[in-house]
């Protein structure tokens, strides 16, 4: 029996636990590639991939690009500024033009929720969602899951709390789906103004206070607080946010057990997370970044039709 991911990776909401585990398991052998002196395997040789970034991104775009290059794909980066997008071209026209150039895959980041699925329904190429509006950021959640599994040896039964701006966070949504599907207990913590209405109906526990979240959790995944939220009136000031919801060593010390600290980046040190926590012994923030490349290699490999049991062999050039 083989498990398939289908044509696109749009989000974790509609994926099965088996599909999610397949990606995590396939990522394992790819981790080693990045540790080699010559970081390249031929699995996607001859495939062309477009990285279509309508929103600024450094980490995610570079991570995808490394994953593609280490699999020997040919890649093109398109940024919204300086391209036809900034000249008023519609998303559907951009998609059709890319399709007309006979590409194999598109990695898309877009400011509108649903944009990745919209593209996937309209082109034959595989589409990978690198973040669509406030909807999903599936590869980020997958690398978070892999990092948690590396650190704790399991995901099932763990208590993972997402802290901060859940309302505007695609990372939070993808994490909620992925974690609950793999049997973790999920908490969310932050001001009421940054929580979607009805969030608890998704099967998560809400903590109004960071102290309660810390008492409960095994893992804290601290979300980035965008400066814009203060300008739009969701919170009065970054200073007060740090005072009430900041993850600090003093607060963590009261926990009965060591808490794993995660952050999808980029961090606002001294706002949502104290530097001593970000750089502390229980932080796995850089492991997340390392795992990001392996997870994205796994996703690219599986969507391109690579067989999971051959992932090891693929590293040696035997799968294609």
């Amino acid at each position: 029996m083989t498990i398939s991911l289908g044509k696109d990776l749009i989000g974790l909401e509609h994926m099965t636990p088996e599909q999610i585990r397949l990606i995590l398991d396939t990522a394992e052998p790819f981790k080693e590639v990045s540790e080699r002196p010559i970081k390249k395997v031929p699995a996607l040789r001859g495939k062309t991939i477009v990285n279509l970034f309508f929103e600024a991104s450094t980490r995610t775009r570079i991570s995808f690009e490394f994953a593609e290059k280490r699999l020997s794909a040919d890649t093109v980066n398109v940024a919204a500024t300086g391209s036809s997008v900034s000249k008023g071209e519609t998303l559907v026209d951009t998609a059709r033009n890319l399709e007309a150039m006979r590409i194999d895959m598109v990695v898309i980041r877009h400011g509108s929720s649903g944009a990745a699925g919209f593209l996937g329904q309209r082109i034959r190429s595989n589409v990978i969602n690198a973040g669509d509006g406030k909807h999903e950021h599936p590869t980020q959640a997958l690398l978070d899951l892999l990092t948690i599994r590396d650190k704790h040896g399991k995901i099932e039964g763990l208590k993972v709390c997402l802290v901060g701006d859940v309302l505007h966070s695609r990372v939070a949504r993808s994490n909620i789906w992925g974690l609950t599907k793999l049997g973790a207990h999920v908490g969310v913590c932050g001001p009421h103004t940054l929580m979607p209405r009805g969030i608890e109906e998704l099967g998560v526990t809400f903590f109004p206070r960071i102290e309660e979240a810390i008492e409960w959790a095994d893992v804290l995944n601290v979300l980035r607080l965008q400066l814009e939220r203060m300008e739009k009136g969701f919170i009065p000031s970054l200073r007060e946010y740090y005072r009430v919801w900041g993850v600090t060593p003093e607060r963590l010390e009261r926990s009965p057990r060591p808490i794993t600290i995660m952050h999808p980046g980029p961090m606002n040190r001294g706002v949502e997370i104290d530097s001593r926590v970000a750089d502390g012994p229980h932080s796995v923030i850089l492991d997340q970044v390392t795992n990001g490349v392996a997870v994205r290699m796994a996703v690219l490999y599986l969507l391109a039709g690579g067989r999971p049991e051959l992932a090891d062999a693929a590293k040696r050039g035997g799968a294609e």
């Binding site: 929720s113 649903g114 909807h135 999903e136 949504r173 209405r197 009805g198 969030i199 109906e201 998704l202």
Partner: peptide, 13 residues
Amino acid sequence: HEGLVAARLGLKG
């Protein structure tokens, strides 16, 4: 509409 569907879809309600 602001409600659970909007929360899931990541759309402003």
